Structure formats: C-alpha cells, structure tokens
Simulated assay, not measured.
Amino acid sequence: MELTTFWFLLIGVLWAGYFLLEGFDFGVGILLPVVGVDDRSRRLAINTIGPVWDGNEVWLLVAGGATFAAFPEWYATLFSGFFLPLLLILVALIVRGLAFEYRGKRDGVVWRRRWDTSIFVCSLVPAILWGVAFGNILRGVELDAQHEYVGGFFNLLNPYALLGGLTTLVLFTLHGAVFLALKTDGPMREHAGRLAARLALLAVPVAAAFLIWTAITHRDGWGIALSAVAAATLVAAIPLTRARREGWAFTATGATLLIAVAALFVTLFPDVMPSTVDPAYSLTVHNASSTPYTLKVMSWVAVCFTPIVLLYQGWTYWVFRKRLKLSDIPA
C-alpha cells in the first residue's frame, strides 16, 4: 500500500472516531433542553459526558494535524475555502467548553440558564455544519487550476450539502439519546429511551435520502455497499431502542456513523477534494500529499503512539462506565 493511501485511510479512521465519540457529545448537548426539566436533571445529563468530552475532541485535533502534515495542499484549500463555516465550528467548540466549565461557578438561575443555552446552541451548530462541510467535499467544490476555492459562502449551502447537515444532525441527536439511556438510570433513562425510539424513526428516512442521493450521483460500488450496511445498522437501532436494549442500540448507532464515514472516504478516493470547474483541477491523494520522506517519518510516529492513545482513552471509558442516577447529583 502506498503511504499516500495509508494516510488517507488513517485520516478517515480519525474522522470516523471523532464522529462516533463527539457525535454523542453533540447529541447530549442538543437534547439538554428536552431532558433537563430542572437544574439537577441538566447536571445529570452533562455529567454523563463530563469525563470524556474533552478527550473526544482530541480526535478532531489529530485529524486536522494529520491532514496538515500528510496533505498540506488539501489542508490549505479546505481551510481557506471553508473558512467561515470552520470558524463558526471552532467558536462553537470553544464556547461549549467554557459553558461546561463555567456553568457551575455560580448558583444563579440566570447564570446557569445562559450557559445551558450556550451548550445547546454550540452543540447544534457543529452537528449541522460538519455534515454541510463533508457534503460539499463529497459533492465537489469550485476549484481553479491553482487548487484555490473560487466559489462563495452561499455556494456551500447547496441542497445536497444541507441534506448532509440535516443527516448529521439527526444521527448525532439519536446517538446522544441512546448514550443518555445507556449512561443513566431512573426517569432520565426512561425519558432518553422514549426520545431515542422517536428519533430513530426520523433518522432513517433522512439518512436514507442522503445515501440514495450519494449513490445515484457517484455510482461507486464499494460506497453503495457500505452505505447499505450503514442503513441496515440504523434500521436495526429502531427495535433495539424500543426494546430498551441500550448497549446494542448504541452499538448500532455507532456502527452507522463509522460505516457512513467509511463509505464517504471510499466514495471520495482517490480525490480528497473534487473540482466542479474541471475534474483535472481536483485535489487527489497524489497531488496534495507531502514528500515520501515526510509520510514515512509520520507513519512510524503513528504506529508507535496511536495504540497508546487508544488504550488510554479506552481505560478512561472503563473507569467511568457506571450508570448515573439523579440521586448522585447533590441538591
């Protein structure tokens, strides 16, 4: 396997891990006004992701850093062409982190309500914009012969990309509801389970519409096969959520996100950013990559340190595996 292909696949794995883990973080934040009927219940919901949310964001940092090092041309075009949406995502992630840390610094009702609203908004915005961004990457954008984006901001708000944003929104929200049902007990568990059952019925047609549109547009055999598997796991989540089999339901929604990202990258390959102006202007794993020596050094670093990071994060989830109850939250 060529090193350019290896790093393209590794970046796909990093994005899949980010969507899997940060996806339920976003979902819990989006559902906070729904499941949080009072301050204690909102604190319970936040505590389910409290020990892990910042570690989950490391996957985004590593994915961005790997893209910068392995495919600098892709990184430059992506972050210049998508500057405004990526800036909005960055601001939302910063404010959301502040909200988690600062909402408990005072006992005032208004103080906490404002930070809770920030958690909701700053979870909603990235959940939509990540889908819009990847929808545009898969669809292709206006790149000229110098691989520079020549379109405008509103060119990114095309129907296909907006459907991609709606898809990530409903999938992350469903994933978050299942996670809440998995991590809590008592009334919160029952409430989150009912929400998950309803959200699953909404997620299936939305995701199916996006996958069918993608299959018709690209006609990639492997991408279609993976999309079909992702659709099957999502459909399987419906009876699992209704039966309150939270562990299996979380496995199903997690598998849906992982396989959907895999389908996206398989469909995209060998392009990393197709051009709608002229296919010859597209960025590929070959013309956007670093030198072979750089990729070789990075590969050894990845082989040495990636297992350590995975083991540490897995240990973190094991330590905080216990279900939480409302009685665990002091008045």
Rank of each mutant, 00 (worst) to 15 (best):
A208P: 00
T256Q: 05
G223T: 03
A288T: 12
L257Y: 01
I224L: 14
A243F: 03
T233Q: 10
F179M: 03
A192E: 12
L226D: 06
V266H: 00
Y293K: 15
R194S: 06
Y293A: 15
T276S: 06
M188K: 12
A192I: 09
F210N: 04
T256Y: 12
L257D: 03
R194E: 10
L226G: 14
A255M: 15
S289K: 07
T253R: 04
V178A: 12
A225N: 03
L166W: 01
A207S: 13
T251S: 14
E246V: 04
A288M: 02
L258E: 03
L258I: 11
V261K: 03
A197D: 05
E190C: 04
R242W: 11
L166A: 04
G254I: 07
A255I: 08
L199Q: 06
A280V: 10
T291Y: 07
L201W: 13
I212T: 05
I216F: 13
H175L: 10
P279K: 10
L257A: 14
T294C: 02
A237K: 03
A177Y: 07
D271V: 02
V178G: 04
A203D: 01
H191N: 03
A209F: 01
P292G: 12
V277A: 15
M273D: 00
T233N: 08
T184H: 11
T284L: 09
A181S: 14
A192V: 13
L258K: 02
V272Y: 07
L257P: 01
L182C: 00
D220I: 09
A208D: 07
L234H: 02
T241M: 11
P239D: 10
D278A: 10
A263E: 07
T217D: 00
A225T: 14
T233Y: 06
T214P: 07
I216Y: 07
T168D: 02
L202W: 14
G186D: 13
T241Y: 06
G247I: 09
A252I: 06
K183G: 05
A263G: 13
V206H: 02
L171E: 07
F172P: 01
V285K: 08
A288H: 12
A203H: 01
L202Y: 11
L257R: 00
A203R: 01
R198P: 08
A255E: 06
A252M: 11
W248C: 01
F250L: 13
A263M: 13
A288S: 15
A228W: 03
T267V: 12
H286G: 01
R245K: 15
S290Y: 11
A231P: 08
L201I: 10
T276G: 00
H218D: 04
H286W: 14
L211A: 04
A252D: 04
I259W: 09
V266W: 00
T184D: 10
A252T: 06
A288C: 12
A230G: 08
I212N: 01
R245T: 05
P274E: 04
G176H: 04
L174Q: 00
F269N: 08
L166S: 01
